[in-house]
Design a protein around this nucleic acid. Sequence first.
DNA 1: TGCCAGGTGATCG
DNA 2: CGATCACATGGC
Length: 299
Amino acid sequence: MNSYTIRNLKDFQLDHIFDCGQCFRWNKTGPGIYSGMAMGRRVTMEQRGDSLTVTPCTKEEFDTIWRPYLDLDRDYGRIKEILSEKDPVMARACEWGSGIRILRQDLWEVIVSFIISQNNNIPRIKGCIERLCRLAEAAPEGGENRRAPGQAGQRAPGQECLRASGQNAGPAGDQYADFPSARALAALEPEDLAPARLGYRARYVIETARQVAEQGLPQTAEQVLSLSGVGPKVANCILLFGMKRYDSFPIDVWVRRVMHELYGFREEDVKGMKAFATAEFGEFGGFAQQYLFYYMRSL
DNA sequence: TGCCAGGTGATCG
DNA sequence: CGATCACATGGC
């Protein structure tokens, strides 16, 4: 299988990147080795020191797909320098998560993933998303003639499946299925998602899929907030991880915890935290949030 | 066993 | 507005 290796990486650690809460479909399969789905492809990434090998991958694929996905052309050294000057807590956080990069993920996948993330824990979020992808792969298109229980996987010839692209075809149950499109999910009912165990979030996902299928993907913060199941926190995650809005500062329980324990805010003073982040971190709020999140979770 | 998890939407004063 | 509560599910 063809691989591509890039060397001399700086400010880059797969362990930091895939464990700072921004993505849910990468799994560690060995020391410095991760396997996952992104950009409609399944690949393995292996880091040894300052070099990274992607398999399967050509040089062209690396430059057009993975270089932007991994945000390799941004100077994170400079960002950490700027943030570290702000305060000692931030400096420690930058050091602890020194290899973090904010992935440029698919917007639709980010929207659904973070709707599912609400009031949920990370291991279970990953399970929900994986089951959602697998479910969609096994299900036929359309809400009218859904398959009956017991007919799983018996797709009629020519019947389109829910996957957005067809290049990762495999039997139902394949661990790496493409993320279901908005159009495909829009045709389903919340009950159809029962096997994914999304809980009460299933109706948010379906409703949002219908909104997006009809109006297209959101382009402004206001449009993001108008989606079903999207409040201030999830909206900020969508803006940061899916829309390149690097000034976004999502405040979740972990950030609230770090702001309370290490910055002295009252736990319920989310407004104060938000104002502080805007004033202190400004256009780098999103990077600051990632360093703080990763740091706090390790404590 | 309970408490809690990358919260949101509905309801009520 | 701001506070309060239900919500599905399962990790720990």
